[in-house]
Structure formats: structure tokens, C-alpha cells
Design a protein around this nucleic acid. Sequence first.
DNA 1: GTGAAAGCGCTAACAC
DNA 2: GTGTTAGCGCTTTCAC
Lengths: 318, 318
Amino acid sequence: MVTIKDVAKKAGHSISTVSYALNNDSRISEKTANKIKEIAKEMNYFPSAAARNLKRKTTKTIFVAISDFGGPVYNELLDGIHHELAKNDYTMIVSTGVSTDKILKQRGSDASIISDINITDKFLVQISNGHSPIFVLDRSLKGNNIYNLTIDNLNAMFELTEDIIKKGYKRIAFVHGVIDSYDNKTRFEGFLKAMNAFNLNVYKEYKGSFTKESGYKIADEIINDKQRPDMLVCSNDEMALGIIEKLQLNNILIPEEIGISGFDDIELSKYFSPRLTSIKVDHFNWGRRIAKTILNLLKGKDIVVKKEKGTLVKRESY
Amino acid sequence: MVTIKDVAKKAGHSISTVSYALNNDSRISEKTANKIKEIAKEMNYFPSAAARNLKRKTTKTIFVAISDFGGPVYNELLDGIHHELAKNDYTMIVSTGVSTDKILKQRGSDASIISDINITDKFLVQISNGHSPIFVLDRSLKGNNIYNLTIDNLNAMFELTEDIIKKGYKRIAFVHGVIDSYDNKTRFEGFLKAMNAFNLNVYKEYKGSFTKESGYKIADEIINDKQRPDMLVCSNDEMALGIIEKLQLNNILIPEEIGISGFDDIELSKYFSPRLTSIKVDHFNWGRRIAKTILNLLKGKDIVVKKEKGTLVKRESY
DNA sequence: GTGAAAGCGCTAACAC
DNA sequence: GTGTTAGCGCTTTCAC
């Protein structure tokens, strides 16, 4: 591995001069700088991140922890974050699972974005002290270096439920995702708010876990039910799609017999028949805003945290 | 930030004793070790990755470069890689775009997996000298520390094409993805091999770019064509799905008027109507194999590189 | 405009 | 069994 020392020797200069030259310090004469740069290039030299990070106490890296790489949602979010960071010469690294814990503990980044449901609040609070800033998505968590960035689930779900109620549905049920997750709680809250506003009672509640499989199970319950709801408000799209699939397999017509709605507006939702009515969040844009917020904080600016809005996408599922 | 020095001071021991204790060196008495560990925990101490990496000249990190986070394929692949690495106490970091170049140059990892079509062969060859090992997926590239890991596109496509020919199709066209990409070339090769084996001429060739959008364009060409092919062998699923969507919008029946096949077997392909016949690759398993190969290499073992097989998934699209 | 040297936080060879 | 110390590759202060 070629180090700054090797370059210095070959260039016939001190390592400090080489360092200055490569970092475009104005003290070095253009002639020397160019000569050094050429030699460095020739030798295929690149500064070691480890050494530089150690010295600079900053990594110019932002870390993003996600639950899994499959989610249709992460795609755009990560794109948005990366887009903004790259413009500002920051590097984005992403990880899942146990790797995440290690990166977090060992301060591999100047800031972290947590969107991994498997990382506990407790762990985050524990490491946060004296840590680089941690931005948590979709949870509500207080702590020293912890910042909360969320989607405005409540208002979006309120708007959706209002639309449903105005269509004349009466036996409206709610399909929960992971019951005490931030997303589920706030979405349910928005749902309840609308139901209350129209003096309607919740007809039924189903307990799922945000997955398509949990949707299948709920569909089974519904199939065997003699007093079915006429509308299912689901806490996310994946459960809604699972339910649709299974109900249709059992010849229950959607939306004629039961209406259904989702949340997230994932890619697949457009391809189902009927196409799912859902709440769309512009994740690319949200990612950019998240990155901007982080960069501002790192620059020492004051930051304002605003909730990201969702918009109702009306299709034919109710 | 709390350093090893702080822990040493508080524990009343030298920093080396602390280092040994935390790294479970057998020289340190259990009593001292436990005391030190407790204090470290209490102080919320974690060793700095930067300092450790610099000293150890190893990061215990494997880097994966991907084209984008959206691809349905990456999900399982990354899961598989992570699964295997985590078991062996390695950390996986993932990145896209310009971040990738920086990480690669600055040796942020003990090995890298490249599955990003935007990274040029030239760049890889340039940095490879004296670099940690680089594993390239889906390309054929020679170099010092470069290893090629690929899917057996040729044989899988041969098998698929053979099945198509045996169904009696005569006017068989091929839909190219990015024309000189490894995947496209080898898939086309397998296609040609089967056509030749049955003495059939390629009826037509269309040029796409692996995206659904390029599928739409090709569909337009086909719609306006007076002498349409009766079968479209596509270089990947996404183009096939784009073509199906557009053809159906124009009331062309699939498979009655035109048959169609894909490659990759992405999630969506099951939900289309008709469901797409395709080649499935077990990406999770492939990811695990890739990780195992890398770990073996890092351990100094000899490695054998075998192509990953694909299997034909027959559905109703031809 | 350039170089010598200190030191970032850690590991590990060596001394005791 | 524990401590002293060199040094990983780099940046940056200070001296010239």
C-alpha cells in the first residue's frame, strides 16, 4: 500500500508538503503542487480513510441503518439522501442487522439515520451520549443527540378516512400493523380522529404486523366472519394487498363487497386489480430533506424539523 | 468522546492492560479484566474504528457497491451476503453512486463486491493494484486483485430458449438489455446457441436497456409492425413486463398473439397477468456463497469460483 | 514556500 | 500479570 511517505520520498519533498499540496493548501507553489499531484497519481496514491479520520475526528460519512434492503420504500429514500450528501461531498453508507450496532458504537460516521425497527430505543439512548447525532425515522424518542424525523401520518390518515366516510361506508374496520410502532400508532390516531369527527364507531380492529402474510391471516378471519365490515382501513399497503389477494381467492368482490385502503403507496399497489387507494409519500424528496437537515446541523446551523406530508392517491379499491 | 486513556485512568491501569482486557487477552487476570470491562461499560466506551483500523490495517468490513437500492434483485443478494458476514463477525456496508468511488479509493474495507454497472472496468483495474481484493459480479474482468463471480446466464438461457422452441414458436425475437453488458451478452449467447441447435434464425432483435421504460418503447415498435414476431425472448423481466403492459393496453393478447419470456424472476412477475415465465436465481444463496468465498480468501485459503445456476420457472406468458 | 515534529486512539512487541 | 513504548498514516502547528 502506497502511503504519503512513499510519495514524499519520490517527490523529494517532506510529507507535510505533500499533504498540503494534495489538499490544495495555498501555501504551496503551484509548480510544486502540480509536480506532487502528478507523482501521487502516477503512484496510484490515495489517502487512507482510517488515518485521516483518526486525525480529523470526522469521517465525512453519514450512516443509514435500514431494516432490510427489500422494502420498496427505502429505494427512493436512500436515493434522496445519497443525492444530497454526494452534492456536499459526503459519503453515504448503509447497513442492516448486527452490522449496524457495530458501526454505531464505533463511530464510523459523522451522523446516523436510523430506520431500522430492530434497533431498540434503549440501545439508541444508551449510545447517544457523547455520540455523533442520531436521526431516527418513524419513532418518537428523546435524547441528547437524538433527532426525530417523521411522516405526518395523522393528518394523512385523517384525510383518507374522511374520504372513506363521505363515500358512505358505515362498518369501518381498522387493520393494525405492529401495534405499538410509531407508524401504526399515529396512523390509527388519525383514523380515530376522523371517525370521531363523524360520530362513527370503529366497527372492528384486526391485528397484523405490516406484512403481506399477516394480511393473509386477517383475510381468513374476515372470510369466516358472518358480520363482515364493509370497509378495511389498513395501516400499510402490504397488509392490504395480502388481504385483497386472499379475499379474491375466496370470491369476495372488492370493492363491491368490501372496500379497502392502504398506506405508503408501494409500487405493487398500482398493479393489483383493483388498484389500491393509498397515501403516497415522496420518499426521494424526504430523503433529500433529511440529508439537508443533517448537513445543516453538522455545519453548526440551527435546524427546524418539519413533518413530511403524505398525499391521498385515489384509485378503485373502495 | 471517551477513549481508552480515560478508561485506563479511571481503572487505575495502563492503556495496554485495558486494551488487552477488552480484547480478551489471556494474560490479564480474570479479576482485572472484569473490573476493566465493567468500568468501560459504565463509561460507555467503545474503541474508535478509525484508530483500530489504522493500527490493525484491517477493517473487518466488506463493502458492496450496487447500482441502486431499488432493484428487486439486490434485496436477497445483500441479505445473503450480510447473513454470512455477520456470522463471521464482519460488517457489511453498502453504497451507490459517487460514494462508491471514494470508499474504494480510500480502502474503507477489507474486500469489495462490485455490482454497480456505473463503475467502469478501467477504474477498477486502475485501483486494483495493491488494493484489497475486488469481487466483480456480472462482468468479466481480469486484474491483479480482481475476482469474477457470475451467474450461468448462458446455460439458463439455453434451457429457456429450448423450451420455447419445443413449444413450436417460429418467429422468435430477442430483446436486448444494455447491449454490451455481461448479462446481456451471455444471455444472448445462450439464446443463439439454442436457436442454432435447432437450425432457427433469429427473427428480429430489439434494443432496450433493462428498464421497464425501454420495454414500452419496444412495445411501440411491435405494435406498428406488420410482421410481428410470435415470441419475444427478453434479456430481463423488467423489459418483459414493460412490453406486456403496453401490448395489452393496445389489445394484443399474450400469450395468444405473442408469447414472451423474462430473466431474473423478480417479485412483480408473479403478479402480472399472464404471469411471466422466467429464470430464477437464488440470490440469497448466491450472496452467501459470495461472502463465504471472500472470507476464505481473506483467511488465506485457496478459492474456487463456480458460476451460480439459474432455474426455469414456467408460467403462462408463452 | 517548505520541513520537522507532535499527536489523533489504538494495538502489540518488549521489558519487567 | 502488568506497564512502557513505538508506530500505524495522516494533518497541522510551529519554526525557519
